[in-house]
Simulated assay, not measured.
Amino acid sequence: MSSLSSAPHETDELRELHDELRAVASELLGKNGSDGAADWHLIARAGWLGLEAPEAFDGADATFAEVAVILGEMGRTAARGPYPAVAVLAVGALNLLAPGAGRDRLFRDTVAGSVVPVVVLGGEPGAETPFRLTPAEDGLRLHGTAAFVPDAPEADRLLVPAVDPDGTIAVVDVDPHAPGLTVTPQPVVDATRSFGRVAAQGVAVLPDAAWRFHGDSRDAVRRLRDRAAVAVACDSLGLSEAMLDATVAYAGVREQFGRKIGSFQAVKHACADMLVQVTVARKLVAAAVRSQAQDAADAAVAASMAKSYTCAAAVDIAGKAMQLHGGMGYTWESGIHVHLKRATLNRALFGSPAAHRKRLAERYASQAPDVSGV
């Protein structure tokens, strides 16, 4: 079951491209090591890091729709590695920043896979960055703390959005080993992910290390958070499809009382419910991906709808998969627990379903007509 190949308004040529990309991703990620880690050099050689990068930096000049295909396959295989942090947030941020020698050099190195930059972005949707730039005698100093930053412990460079003295947000390029900066690993129940707490206490900022966004800086940070939310939804959709496929296959071979368990009414209903949830999630994710790729006006709404529904449904689907696998579902060999833990973490990552529903409710409430005088 492909997550985006049947997306509305997708041309036959684009659909064929996505199907080919999906097949290549499935094969490459199928070669993951025993710990589920994807080969970073293979990913770089495949060109996945530069899908959205301009041709001037050896990129493919493609869109988020192509990145979403890879994200879905990573969720399906429960692959680990910093690809989402780099391809979604770092490349997304670099595309939103004004050109400059430092930014351009980092862009080229990122596409080549020689550097792993991580954007230090935390908080609920719509939250302001927790970092500030303050003036000092020798320039600017960076202060702030963010917890559970994806792949921070593996980062070669940290890109930190921070409010500067004039009130706008700049992105500060920081060495993870700079004096005053600490990155502390934060273990989570999902063993396929890596997180860290980033704390800056008066980190000196070089004059050419504070980069500016094109246009409104706060809108740019919001767009980055929305990209991250859609990326997590793509991952959850991929793992949901994997759990549905695995459950249907198991129900077709597992026998109980002399019959395949797939012939039991209760099992049929449970699988049908899973299929309905996957189908709805697929439509919402396709709409969110399309809005991101086209930078549509409704991108924020589509992101919250996809994130809130898909990530909540993924926990339910993985839980049903474990239940329908019976005792086998609780074993390490089945791998069901890996997807369930990943789905549980995805549900909270970059905004919980409740936070995104609140965001949607506030948006629609602000657009409702005033009937107080009626």
Results as ranks from 00 to 15, higher is better:
E27G: 10
A299W: 02
P82F: 03
V120F: 07
V198N: 06
G238T: 03
E16T: 13
V160W: 14
R357K: 08
Y309S: 09
A228P: 05
R141S: 01
Y83M: 09
V280R: 15
A286S: 09
E241H: 03
C234D: 03
V160Y: 13
Y250T: 02
F195E: 07
S114C: 02
K283N: 10
S6W: 10
A297G: 06
K320Y: 04
H18Q: 13
R157T: 12
T344I: 12
G122M: 07
V119R: 01
Q323C: 09
L345K: 08
L244C: 04
P135Q: 07
V285F: 06
A228S: 13
R157K: 15
A303R: 07
F131L: 13
D316P: 01
A368Q: 05
L17M: 14
A303Y: 07
A297N: 07
S6M: 12
Q323Y: 14
N346P: 07
D61Y: 11
A313K: 04
R225M: 14
L158W: 03
A365D: 01
E66P: 03
L142F: 06
P153R: 15
G262A: 14
A127R: 08
W211C: 06
V221W: 06
T184V: 08
G262R: 03
A368N: 02
V205C: 10
W211M: 14
L106H: 00
P117G: 03
Q277T: 04
V198H: 07
V149E: 12
N32W: 02
H356E: 05
D190V: 06
V188M: 14
G329H: 06
F64V: 05
A170S: 11
G122N: 08
A318R: 10
A152L: 13
E10C: 14
G122A: 15
V115L: 03
D138M: 10
A162G: 11
A286D: 01
A343H: 06
R22I: 04
V189N: 10
G202R: 09
A303F: 09
M274D: 09
V374A: 10
Y250N: 04
A365Y: 03
R103I: 01
A25N: 08
P125G: 10
L133N: 02
A101H: 04
P179L: 02
A127M: 08
T110G: 01
L349H: 15
N95E: 03
T110C: 01
H214N: 13
S114V: 03
S6H: 13
R105T: 04
A231C: 07
A246D: 04
F195H: 14
K320R: 14
L206A: 15
Q277S: 14
F195L: 15
S334D: 11
P130S: 14
G326D: 04
G50Q: 09
F148G: 06
A101D: 02
R222S: 12
A220Y: 07
P150C: 12
A302Q: 09
T134C: 08
P179Q: 03
F350V: 08
